[in-house]
Design a protein around this nucleic acid. Structure first.
Lengths: 345, 345
DNA sequence: CTGTTAGCGCCTTCAA
DNA sequence: TTGAAGGCGCTAACAG
């Protein structure tokens, strides 16, 4: 492989291969003199231990597998970064598999069968590479129960839900409740909501938070303020038109993602409704563009880094045989910008 | 490790371990009967070959290392995706190292010493894991000559430049020339440029393209139309104010990235200059937000996926001992949107 | 303080 | 068509 092995340096340093191994791993005391000689030869010969051999012997690879459904989907890199952040502290390596689902099956994620084979292959290869655990990153939160059969190897899902396995998700309900609280604190009470597709878990949870806030704060509940979007800007646009056509307009709209908030902005612009003076809006996701729009969109930022970090922590616990993973669900953070008008002192 | 090994299934199938190996690899003819029996036992016992042992024997790992300076920087995931796209076709795996430079050393990328140690470690670990080659992805194009010492193992850099090693970059000069051509075709001749920091390679190359176009199309050359920005929106804003204060205003501005184009938009808005009617703008990068602004920004899209793909191809050639890598530099693609006004028929 | 040696799980030459 | 056996590079007893 890389040519020079432990025995080469043993020969050159006039010691046994065992001694070399010992100085390499610090597994035993070695006379200073000898150690230095060995170390010097190691330097000279540019020796690097062969990890394959080490793994075979030690039965440890210090490697976990990460299966990302698609690394190009906006939330994923930050999650991977969180995993790295944590992994690097425990001296763990990452074998990354990119399923490229977005290119392969597009948005057809409902028919699990379309990509189950890909997932199986990915898991097999990872297992074959002797990873000590696996983290699975979805492209958007949905139930993935039973997707991966890891033959007992620890697995943690994140950015997705699961019935039997550990999964790390942020608190969606709390997030939309917090958004609503913010709006209320700014004097809004007629608050409309534009949801994502209603068969999605985040939509349901965020709606729960909305509804809970409406109840808790005793806001006027008007079914006409509840609009079903589909995550796309166009739906935000169309539904905002409807909302602004109401005789009793809302003063604020909570859009379940930033993309639909763009639609809100465009509709308002086209109708000559000034924002935020005449209409406030909040988004979700803290997408990069939300800071570049005019007005800059106030939004809920997802704790992606922390999710990755916690996923790695949880996996590590699992790998050590512990099961007591009761860590707090990561929380979204409100990013205050310019799209919400303060209506009261 | 995963428990069941080749000898377990040999015992259970009443054959020698050699036979199992043969059916596994198809290295030799095995009587149909025997083969099927072995295959069945493999299924039953959920046997997966131990890749560490295979690698040790075969002296091949089918794995390459990818060192990303920071996976969260906007261009990087798409490059990684391109690498995967290619790697998967040649049945190669990716060991990903994320230097997390953005968090660690921020924008201080000039002092190589600040992170050279991190790079060395990353390379050592990868070499130790017996990767067959390395791809290095920078966070922004700059000269990285001599950064990695891979002890002769093939390495390809991308999204960065290099003197002695292979590096895959897109054609920056061609891109800005193409942008200029587009502007000229739309009837613009008084075209200003807002550059990035002038010590950066992309700035210089893009300026070359600008200058070449000014010459080729015999555009009026006015030094006042050349503004030095720093990649940030604020600089776009400030410089646009200067440009709009000129008695002879430009009709179009070429901003060297989309972020500064945002600054252009804001300045125009604040000064009551309508876009694109009274001022056109083009950006660079095709950042996600460029499609969400009003007007939607016409911009140059970087061939990131292709760069990753070509980097993997080039690496593969290197790994096979070939050196004839003369592939065409990937080209940027113009994304036509609404920020450029057509001044002529 | 140092050396000898038996494997880790697999592939592959040699022999049958 | 099948087995037996020697290592790949390294670790960790065991033995001095």
């Amino acid at each position: 492989m890389s040519g020079v092995g432990i025995k080469d340096i043993a020969a050159r340093a006039n010691v046994s291969i065992a001694t070399v191994s010992y100085v390499l791993n610090g597994t035993r005391n070695v006379k200073l003199n000898t150690r230095e000689r060995v170390l010097r030869v190691i330097q000279e010969m540019n020796y690097k231990p062969n990890n394959a051999a080490q793994s075979l012997k030690r039965k440890r690879t210090n490697t976990i597998g990460v299966i990302a459904e698609d690394v190009t989907v906006f939330n994923v890199p930050e999650i991977i970064d969180g995993i790295h952040d944590c992994a690097e502290r425990m001296d763990m390596h990452i074998l990354l598999t990119n399923l490229r689902l977005d290119k392969r099956v597009g948005r057809n994620l409902h028919q699990t069968e379309a990509y189950r084979q890909d997932v199986d292959n990915a898991v097999d290869e990872l297992l074959s590479k002797q990873v000590e655990g696996i983290i699975y990153i979805g492209v958007h939160p949905r139930d993935l129960t039973g997707l991966c059969d890891t033959l007992g190897k620890p697995i943690v899902y994140t950015y997705s839900y699961t019935q039997n396995d550990v999964s790390i998700q942020y608190n969606d309900e709390q997030a939309s409740y917090e958004a609503m609280s913010y709006l209320v604190q700014h004097g809004h009470s007629r608050i409309a909501i534009i949801s994502g597709t209603m068969n999605s878990t985040p939509s349901r949870l965020r709606f729960n938070g909305y509804y809970k806030a409406v109840t808790d704060f005793e806001l006027p509940f008007d079914p006409q303020y509840i609009k079903m979007g589909n995550w796309e800007a166009e739906s935000g646009y169309r539904l905002t038109q409807e909302l602004l056509a109401l005789r009793q307009r809302p003063t604020a709209i909570l859009a379940m993602n930033d993309v639909m908030a763009v639609g809100v902005l465009r509709a308002a612009t086209d109708l000559g409704v000034r924002m935020p003076e005449e209409l406030s809006v909040m988004g979700f996701d803290n997408r990069e563009f939300s800071d570049y729009l005019m007005p800059r969109i106030t939004t809920m930022s997802l704790p992606l880094h922390e999710m990755g970090f916690q996923a790695m922590e949880a996996l590590s616990r699992l790998m050590q045989g512990e099961t007591t993973e009761v860590s707090q669900m990561p929380l979204c953070r409100l990013i205050e910008r310019d799209s919400v008008m303060r209506l009261i002192e």
